[in-house]
């Protein structure tokens, strides 16, 4: 079967294949805080980030709080000729729904609110169980898989750039002010980027697979 297999006898778990180019490497013990990258294409193989579980848990819980705040509180308000209007993030979605853009409304709802929430909750769930050693159960594996699948589809930071562009577009039409949800969304973006700094995917999978074995 393994016609081109190396001469040394090796266990599967000592090998790592690059996710980007499939090149096989021996797994080395690396120092805390460093990363191993593929010898052929340079893609990241694995990392060992310090206190990854604790920090990711903290950041995802903070992210959930920011997300709830940013959805509930007023986001932007404007006034012109004595008429004023104030919207929350969810109003941006319902506006699309109301003007017969149902599909687009649902898509925005998913990208701005649903998918980021689901991803943060899944991460927080896995990290809580790991952190407090509650035991490894199969749902944690699917949670990790979905957290990874959803990553490119959580677009809070892109929504934020969209908001800034809209503010510039209508700055000469009306007086605008930003509400508390604007700052909550900014907090969410900061915590999301903190998660990408703290979260050590390979270590978490190692924890999940070795502890359950």
């Amino acid at each position: 079967m393994s016609q081109a297999a190396p001469n040394r006898k090796i266990a599967f778990d000592d090998l790592v294949a690059c996710a980007s180019c499939d090149w096989l490497h021996y797994r080395m013990t690396i120092e805390k805080g460093s990363r191993a990258s593929c010898a052929r294409c340079g893609h990241e193989l694995y990392t060992r980030k310090p206190f990854s579980v604790d920090r990711t848990l903290a950041a995802s819980l903070a992210g959930i709080v920011f997300l709830i705040l940013s959805l509930c509180l007023p986001f932007l308000s404007l006034s012109r000729s004595g008429v004023s209007s104030s919207i929350s993030v969810l109003d941006a979605v319902t506006a699309l729904w109301a003007s017969d853009m149902r599909w687009l409304g649902l898509l925005s709802l998913a990208l701005i609110a649903l998918l980021p929430t689901v991803r943060l909750v899944l991460l927080a769930y896995v990290m809580t169980r790991l952190r407090y050693r509650l035991g490894i159960i199969p749902s944690m594996f699917s949670a990790m898989r979905w957290a990874e699948r959803l990553e490119p589809w959580a677009m809070a930071e892109i929504f934020m750039v969209g908001v800034v562009v809209s503010l510039v577009k209508i700055s000469d039409l009306a007086t605008l002010s930003v509400g508390p949800a604007f700052w909550a969304l900014l907090g969410l973006i900061i915590t999301t980027s903190l998660i990408s700094i703290f979260f050590c995917k390979d270590s978490v999978w190692q924890l999940l697979t070795t502890r359950s074995a």
Partner: peptide, 13 residues
């Protein structure tokens, strides 16, 4: 897409 969504929601005067 988000610019249009925000403007359509906000500018309802």
């Amino acid at each position: 897409v988000f610019v249009v969504a925000v403007l359509a929601a906000l500018i309802q005067l």
